[in-house]
Amino acid sequence: MGEMIKMVMVLTILSVISGGGLKGLEEWAKPKIENNVMNLVKGPAIRQILEAADNDPVEDRFKIKDGDQELNIFVGVFGGKADTVVVESSANGFADKVGMVVAINMTDDTLRGMAVTTHKETPGLGAMAKDDPNFSAQFAGKNITDSFGVTNDGGQISALSGATITSRAVCSGINQAVDTYNRLKPQLQEQIKGMGN
């Protein structure tokens, strides 16, 4: 019995020490990680789709509550007018989740652009969603009232050759972003008021 207790004790103590230590580490690392994510992953993508913006959209960002989640919203200022919001979204792709950012022009509810941020798709096939500018260019200017889908499923987006799943994922990610946008539109308008100038 003594041995059993020792076994359980050692295991538990190790777990506890590990859990506590890691929590500490995590708290210390969290801001750094967020910063990295912002600068290295989302930043370039956002700056790319909002290339023409007057401001730096990554700087001009705010958080907004959606249910019990907090969302990052980036704001683009065009012609002195803060009319574009960038919403993050993700959908299941071929291998893992495909993360993307979707820029929506609030004035006419059209897509200003989208870009894939994170993915683990097959190089040369699914990965083209991020690398092939022709693919992402299809989305620019589309009206968000349409649901996005690939041609195989009767939509208007021509899928990447050999990567229908990834293409579908991108479309569903955009649809999600649009949903979020529609849901939060009033709050967003509230927020961006006064930005730009």
Binding site: S18, L22, L25, A29, K32, I33, N36
Partner: peptide, 16 residues
């Protein structure tokens, strides 16, 4: 447990 702990450390550090 020991290994997993260090793996998480690496994971966090690498992210940072």
């Amino acid at each position: 447990i020991i290994i997993a702990t260090f793996v998480i450390v690496v994971e966090q550090m690498m992210q940072a």
